[in-house]
Structures are given as structure tokens and as C-alpha cells.
Amino acid sequence: MSTTVKELTVLEAFLISTGIVALAEIGDKTQLLAFILAARYRKPLPIVLGILVATLLNHGLAGALGAWLTSLISAEHLRWILGASFLAMAVWILVPDKIDEDDLGRTRYGAFTATLVAFFLAEMGDKTQIATVALAAQYEALFAVVMGTTLGMMIANVPAVYVGEKLAHRMPVRLVHSIAALIFALLGIAILAGVGASLGLEG
């Protein structure tokens, strides 16, 4: 792979990761969590920093898992798995999230620590974490994917911390999720089409 092609692939991984996660996070439980934390602590900066650190840790682990999977599974099988995963994500993202404020519990720690713990746990098994695994495996550009998904999280959640629920009521959540679902579906179809072409299944 030439340097130029590699750079374009890394840029594509970063931009796709940023866009998908930013769209997927609108109305997601972690954005709802950002609203709740902002209302509870009224300290935007520690909350934003908590979201940043939690996301870097969580998505870093997810990206590393995705990169590791590429070394365990053959390229052909990996494409089938990734194609199916992206299609499943397209469906999953259309399912609305909700969060109970009581689930946060009470903490004697400050806004930063509470946000760090709450966001890290909320992201475990969440759609954006699974997407990070799949994207890292697809693009084999760990740093670009993790930076992209982290930026996407910040784009969606920082305004939620500073502006609050007024922003949420004005966002066309269903439309935004439909766009994100379409992107996931197109990625899945493209990957599966690539499998079919490699196996001589194209029409």
C-alpha cells in the first residue's frame, strides 16, 4: 500500500468514525447521562473532561480488541462478520435509549470522577463501543478510529453538557438516527459486496 493510499485510508477511518458516532450519540443513553450529570453538578468543565477520559479509555480498549481480532480471524471470515455487524448496528441504532437517573446512584466523589465512572460503565456494551470494535477491525487504523469515535462522542455530548435539555428537544433524533443507520447499512452492504466479489458471486 502506497503512502498516499494509506494516508487516505487513515483519513477515511477518522472521518467515518467521527461521523457515525456523532450521529449515533444523539439521543443515546450517554447523551441522556450528560444531561443528568450537568443538571446534578452544574460544573461543565469537569464533566466534559470526565467524558473525554472515559471515552478514550473505553474506546481505546474497544479499538485494541478490534485490531486484535484481525490477527485471529482470516480476512474473508472477518469481512462476513463485519458486514453482518454493521447491518445489525443499522437496526440497533434505531432502537431508542433511555436511562433512569436513579441508576447513577449517589457518589461522594466530584463531578469529574462521577462522570468518568458513569460514562465508562455506560459505554460498556453500548452501540458506539461495538461500532469502535468493528471500525478498528475494518480499517486497521487503531489510532485514527479511536480518535474519530472519541471526537464523535465529544461533538454529541459537550453541547449536551453546556446547553442541556433545550437542545435535546430541538434535535430531530429519529432523522439523525436514520442517517446513522443508513451509513452503517451502506458500510455493511459494501463489505459484504466485497466478499461476494472476492468469491466470484457478483452477477
Score class of each variant (00 low, 15 high):
A156H: 11
A134C: 15
V117E: 02
G148M: 14
Y162K: 06
T128R: 02
F184Q: 07
G110E: 02
R170D: 00
M147R: 05
G148V: 10
A122K: 03
A185Y: 09
K127L: 10
G110V: 01
F112P: 03
F143W: 14
L142H: 08
H177A: 02
A137L: 12
R106T: 08
E123Q: 06
L135G: 04
L186I: 15
V146A: 06
T128A: 03
T107L: 06
Y139D: 02
A114N: 11
A141M: 09
P172K: 14
A141W: 02
Q138M: 14
V145R: 10
V173A: 12
D126N: 04
A156R: 09
G152V: 13
L142C: 01
I179F: 12
D126C: 08
M154C: 05
T149V: 15
D103K: 14
A181M: 11
R108N: 00
A114G: 06
E123R: 03
A111Q: 00
S178K: 05
K127E: 00
M147P: 05
M171I: 15
G125M: 03
V133C: 10
K98E: 15
F119Y: 09
A136D: 11
A134L: 14
G152D: 06
H177N: 13
E165V: 04
L151K: 08
E123M: 09
T132V: 12
K166M: 03
F120G: 01
E165W: 03
Y109I: 00
Y139R: 02
R106C: 00
A137C: 06
L182K: 06
L175P: 01
G164N: 03
M171S: 04
F119H: 06
A180D: 04
K127H: 01
F143P: 01
P159K: 10
T128L: 07
N157D: 08
E101D: 08
M153V: 06
V158K: 11
L135H: 07
V173R: 15
I183L: 14
L104I: 06
G105L: 00
V163Y: 11
L121K: 11
F120N: 04
V146K: 13
G188N: 11
L151F: 08
L167F: 03
R108G: 06
H177T: 00
L121E: 03
